[in-house]
Simulated assay, not measured.
Amino acid sequence: MSRRKQIYEGKAKILYEGPEPGTLVQYFKDDATAFNAQKKAVLDGKGVLNNRISEFVMLRLEEIGIPTHFIKRLNMREQLIKKVEIIPLEVICRNVAAGTMAKRLGLDEGTKLPRSVVEFCLKRDDLGDPLVAEEHIHTFGWATHAEVDEMITMTLRINDYLRGMFGGIGINLIDFKIEFGRLDVTMENGSVAHQVILADEISPDSCRLWDRETDRKMDKDRFRRDMGGVTEAYTEVATRLGILKEANNVHAPKLSVVSNDD
């Protein structure tokens, strides 16, 4: 990897220049962070699990017509992705009150919402990723009206699909965070247009996942709240999805996976 040109390093991933124009290589780290990186740790095997789970989800979303940046998995820790201009917003979809929503609104965690709620946060670690309204987005030009509508529509479609997918393996989707990017697309008349597509990742790092029978947390909250068993929980999610053959060893070099390459 030292011979590649590094483009960006975030809290959980590194982006490298891709082998072809318009592509990047996304590397999943074992680093875990919370509270805007005030809490940090390295969890052996987490990057491998997130890579495989995100690949699984992205492929299935593509099947229902959600455009994504995912091209293919390269190895246990890397994906080849389309290079996009990231829209500087985090889009959060909530089905149950948890985390910051529960604290902000004084709700008991676990309160089922009467309808799914879509929220936007500005991607600014130095400001704590503040919650913003659509009026802010339009006023400061972070996204157009059409892009906001497209992001909301896709987020709700993704939510419907993921709730069914996780529900089928006994897991409740409490909420999730996603990001979108602009992909340059050449039109028939030669002009270039921006297509909004799903980017970043979808994994237990970015979703709240609770066991349907016990409400046991199977996501990053296990790290945030010092509950332990983070990679074990991620491994169970992957196992239930059919990605892993065995759930008895979470160390990255020894993970036994079901191949999607054939």
Rank of each mutant, 00 (worst) to 15 (best):
K103S: 15
A233C: 03
T231D: 04
Y8G: 04
C207F: 08
A37R: 02
S116I: 03
K103T: 15
V196D: 05
V148Q: 01
T33H: 07
D200E: 05
V96Y: 02
R216I: 08
D126R: 11
T111G: 00
T111C: 01
L15Y: 07
A247Q: 12
Y161H: 10
I71N: 06
T68P: 03
N260L: 12
L127Y: 13
D205E: 08
T68F: 02
M76V: 08
M58T: 02
G170Q: 08
R104N: 10
K5N: 00
T231Y: 00
D215N: 07
F35E: 03
K13T: 03
L59I: 14
N248M: 07
I66C: 01
A199M: 05
P253K: 07
E9I: 07
A252N: 01
F176Y: 03
A102V: 13
K103F: 13
V42E: 03
D129W: 06
L241W: 05
A97T: 09
M227Y: 06
R157S: 14
I66R: 00
L131C: 14
G65S: 10
E9L: 05
I202Q: 04
E134S: 15
G10F: 01
V258N: 13
G47M: 04
P204E: 07
G190I: 13
I243Y: 01
T100G: 10
P19A: 13
N248K: 08
A193I: 10
A37H: 00
S206K: 05
T239V: 12
D211E: 12
G65L: 11
T231A: 08
E90G: 10
H194A: 09
T111L: 06
L244F: 14
N260P: 07
R60P: 01
G10M: 00
T23R: 06
R182N: 03
D211A: 10
Q6L: 07
G141T: 07
H145F: 13
R240M: 09
T235F: 03
D30R: 06
R208N: 11
P21E: 11
L24R: 06
P114M: 06
F180G: 11
R124K: 14
I202K: 07
L162I: 07
G229Q: 01
E55R: 14
T139E: 14
N249M: 04
E134R: 15
A252H: 03
S206P: 04
H251Q: 09
E9D: 02
R3C: 06
Y16E: 03
I71C: 08
G10I: 01
R104H: 11
D262Q: 03
F70H: 02
T68C: 04
Y234D: 08
P21I: 10
V250R: 05
A247H: 11
